[in-house]
């Protein structure tokens, strides 16, 4: 799987995860699917509803947020591509908790945030047998600047 995201949207989500530090933060990725490539067009920041004393190492998006964002994406011909969350002061590698709670087909973007600053973003996908994650390719686009260039605004 390849996930393409603009630097602007990636900055937006990582700033959110820096702001939620030392707690975990997260949200959803919405956009288009072309073959094995997912193009992110929207980032939805979603509150962590896990018990507050556990938020330093756990993230939970409540069902209502999933329902609302999926319905909005479906209605506009977009796809819910996956979700992102932070690992505060920890590598951007899926944990056993991530694996047991993961969904197939989704793009899992994990951001390591160290000392309140983003350190690393890595993309993962649950294997079909649910026994492991497979690392995907995270690609950054300059969509905003390309759009300005196409309009002649440099």
């Amino acid at each position: 799987m390849e996930l393409v995201i603009s630097t602007e949207l990636h900055d937006r989500l990582t700033h959110h995860l820096e702001n939620t530090f030392p707690s975990e933060g997260g949200g959803f990725l919405v956009g288009h699917i072309k073959g094995d490539t997912r193009q992110v067009t929207e980032v939805h920041l979603v509150e962590n509803t896990f018990a507050s004393e556990e938020q330093f190492h756990r993230y939970l998006a409540e069902a209502g947020a999933f329902q609302r964002i999926e319905d909005e994406a479906d209605a506009r011909g977009l796809s819910l591509l996956g979700y992102f969350h932070s690992h505060p002061d920890h590598p951007a590698i899926p944990s056993e908790f991530d694996r047991t709670h993961a969904w197939p087909y989704f793009a899992y973007l994990i951001v390591s945030v160290r000392g309140g600053k983003r350190a690393e973003s890595r993309l993962w996908e649950l294997a079909a047998n649910r026994e492991s994650f497979i690392e995907g390719q995270l690609s950054f686009s300059q969509a905003v600047f390309e759009e300005k260039s196409n309009n002649g605004n440099h």
Binding site: L60, A61, A63
Partner: peptide, 11 residues
Amino acid sequence: LRIIPSIAGGR
């Protein structure tokens, strides 16, 4: 009816 995942993760 509807199936709605709760999305969870953790380090």
